[in-house]
Design a protein around this nucleic acid. Structure first.
Length: 716
DNA sequence: AGCACGCCGACT
DNA sequence: GTCGGCGTGCTC
């Protein structure tokens, strides 16, 4: 009888791996590193990943429990994948199992294998022979009787690609550089909106797949026909962008196995997609940030579209940056990684300036006759708005209606009005559990807190003085929608925001109707600003972005600039207007001369980024400084602050600055008081070394305060 | 994090 | 006399 100690990573907050005893018959192979196993843990059973073998263990023999089952039908996760998770666990100071397991499809973590076996079978992989010998013999008969039919498209030449549109010189050069890159190559694809970055990704992917297929054919070794010669991972910032891109990719590459991975998938589909990637079958994996942790044994290229987008940063649990992990993964594998953006993050821009990333530029729009839109500011002091819309913007929308073209209004505030107020006594709709206003949602007739989800009926009268005349103050997308109906009763108006797209699939239905031209005026939040390619859209109106100009968050201007460039980029992508004019962008503001708006008008990312980088350098902010944030929550603010003070006094190290604990901007959320402590260091390795030591000590502190650490925080 | 055990208040 | 509040302790 074979026997050994397996080290297993489990999804628990404990910073350790767990030893289990595996006993098997002599004809059974010892589970290898990367294999999934079922083990007893406390009073329950759970699935873990084998991360090592040990001859012995420090634990007393009576504490060691036996492995219950090995998921031998699933090929083990690769050493590369394990190393990626190991790096992320170290870097973000989280337990290994917490990195490895939550990203796996639920069906792989289930205690029963029914769904897993079904998915494997659907992918043409028979379930491994069951351990019982009788069943084994029977399973072999199944294999012959039920050989899965080879899908027709796999029989065709998988490297045959649909007709590609011609590239301009800059696009072609970018494709060549990506496709011919040797080894690790971080590439910034800096291309203005509508410059055809997607086309570059597709043709570079095709070239890399073709080259890998040729190389494989040249070896003459027999390979399973469904095995992809190379795998390409493409990340996009939003789920809503996957259908359009997936459609484009499938249309272009009808013979390739293309799967998507994002949180909107049903469990069955998610399992099949993940397995198609893990088994090496999927040529192209399209996904949101979580896809960066998927298993891709033949990964040859990573593309991060809109790399600057904040949604690449996970904001709970393991707070990783999918973009940063992508660069690490590419480095580990020695492959190119393409970071695409019209407004790169300052981190990426700084890398490019310093020569660490190679910059590929697309300075022109790709479509015939398409030029960058004309951006104008509309002074709201001089042109007083009606229903939030200045006469200039109203006139511009009217012109689009006459031309049969579409307009997009961007307002990053959902709901009807951000606050409800009583004129008589000064009451305002504060959330009773958070430091925030409750937002008026008119269609639902509710007051809603966007931070803790508390909901109340809209009061008929003032809760303190009884006044029945309560006023909604300010303007959200619902109120603008109402105003648009009043001003343009004949127009087809559609609102797209988190509220209107709550039901699964409804966002796709909404975007489809815009594409089909069934909408004249689109009003929405940042959901409509990103990536979409609306051919008939020639006008973009930005309703009131001024609040972000005066934020205390030093990243606010970087974000606002990117957001404005992004939404402006939706206008005039397909070519000129009916009357021969280019796309138009109107920014309504009280500060028309603000340098940020002036830079947007000039489409001057380079200049603006240069200014911001200088400011950051002077102020010793990222990317010239590395940061970590220790957060604490408690029922009383003093407890949270007290814990942070204790933590701050615990350890010191050269070049490490531990700032004073401060209450968070949103001090109270859902009746919990929150405070935070910023740690800074100009050297990333020095910060890492400090954090490792510091957290080891912090974890020993016995406290009732809930705390967490975020490395490279984006919201401070 | 789960999930237990453990010791004090309002109910049949 | 029990049901159950959530304090603290452990998980190989």
């Amino acid at each position: 009888m074979e026997q050994c100690i397996l080290q297993v990573a489990l999804d628990t907050p404990l910073h350790t791996v767990f030893d289990y005893c595996w006993r098997g018959r002599e004809d059974e192979a010892i589970p290898v590193v990367g294999q999934l196993v079922v083990v007893p843990f406390g009073r329950r059973e759970t699935v873990g990943v084998v991360v090592g073998h040990a001859a012995g263990t420090e634990l007393s023999a009576d504490k060691i429990k036996d492995v219950i089952a090995v998921r031998s039908q699933l090929p083990p996760l690769s050493a590369h994948w394990l190393a990626l998770c190991g790096f992320a666990a170290d870097y973000y100071q989280r337990p290994l199992g917490e990195v490895m397991l939550p990203g796996l499809p639920k069906n792989l973590r289930a205690l029963t294998t029914v769904a897993l076996d079904k998915a494997l079978k659907a992918l043409g992989r028979m379930a491994a022979p069951p351990t019982k010998r009788k069943a084994k013999a029977k399973a072999a008969d199944i294999v012959q009787a039920d050989e899965p039919a080879q899908p027709a498209e796999v029989l065709a030449d998988p490297m045959q690609f649909g007709a590609a549109p011609p590239l301009n010189a800059a696009q072609q050069q970018a494709v060549d550089v990506i496709a011919q890159a040797e080894g690790f190559a971080p590439l910034l694809l800096y291309g203005v909106t509508g410059s055809g970055k997607t086309e570059v990704y597709l043709q570079a992917a095709a070239a890399i797949l073709k080259r890998a297929a040729d190389a494989r054919a040249a070896t003459g070794e027999p390979v399973a026909p469904e095995e992809a010669p190379a795998q390409i991972l493409v990340l996009v910032p939003e789920i809503n962008l996957t259908p359009q891109l997936e459609g484009n990719i499938r249309a272009r590459f009808p013979h390739l196995n293309v799967v998507s991975l994002h949180s909107g998938l049903a469990e069955g589909e998610r399992t099949r997609s993940w397995l198609a990637a893990h088994l090496g079958q999927a040529h192209i994996v399209l996904g949101t940030r979580l896809a960066i942790l998927s298993s891709l044994p033949h990964l040859k290229l990573i593309v991060i579209d809109e790399e600057h987008d904040p949604s690449y940063k996970q904001q709970e649990g393991l707070r990783y940056s999918a973009r940063d992990l992508a660069v690490w993964r590419a480095h580990q594998l020695g492959i190119p990684v393409v970071l695409g953006s019209a407004t790169p993050s300052l981190e990426t821009w700084q890398h490019a300036q310093a020569g660490r990333y190679r910059r590929l530029e697309l300075r022109q729009r790709a479509a015939q006759q398409a030029v960058l839109p004309k951006v104008k500011v509309v002074d709201m002091e001089r042109d007083k708005p009606q229903d939030g819309l200045t006469s200039t913007l109203i006139g511009a929308i009217r012109k689009r209606l006459e031309n049969g073209e579409q307009s997009l209004l961007f307002l990053n505030r959902r709901g009807y009005a951000p606050v409800l107020a009583c004129d008589a006594c000064g009451w305002i709709s504060n959330c009773m559990r958070c430091d925030a206003f409750m937002v008026v949602h008119r269609p639902e007739r509710r007051l809603r807190c966007h931070h803790c989800s508390l909901e109340l009926h809209i009061p008929k009268s003032c809760p303190t003085c009884g006044n029945i005349d309560l006023q909604p103050l300010g303007r959200g997308t619902q109120r603008v929608e109402e105003g648009l109906h009043a001003i343009f009763p004949e127009a087809r108006v559609l609102r797209i925001d988190a509220d209107s797209t709550r039901l699964k699939g409804s966002a796709q239905i909404a975007f489809d109707s815009v594409h089909r031209g069934e909408v004249d005026i689109l009003i929405g939040t940042q959901m409509v600003a990103k990536g979409h390619d609306f051919k008939k859209l020639t006008l973009v109106g930005v309703m009131n972005p001024d609040t972000a100009l005066f934020s205390h968050d030093y990243r606010a201007s970087e974000r606002l600039f990117a957001q404005l460039m992004q939404v402006a980029g939706r206008a005039g992508r397909a070519g000129l207007s009916a009357d021969g004019s280019s796309g138009e962008v109107l920014i309504q503001t009280r500060y028309p001369h603000h340098p940020l708006y002036q830079a947007v008008m000039r489409h001057d990312y380079d200049g603006f980024a240069g200014t911001l980088l200088e400011e950051r350098q002077q102020a010793c902010f990222p990317p010239f400084m590395y940061q970590a944030l220790l957060r604490a929550e408690a029922r009383e603010l003093e407890q949270a602050i007290g814990f942070l003070q204790e933590a701050a006094a615990m350890l010191e190290a050269p070049a490490i600055t531990i700032n004073a604990p401060i209450p968070m901007t949103m001090m109270r959320v859902a009746n919990v008081e929150r405070a935070q402590l910023l740690v800074e260091c100009p050297s990333r390795p020095a910060l890492q070394a400090f954090l490792k030591e510091w957290l080891a000590e912090l974890r020993l502190v016995k406290t009732r305060v809930r705390w967490s650490l975020e490395v490279d925080p984006v919201d401070i």
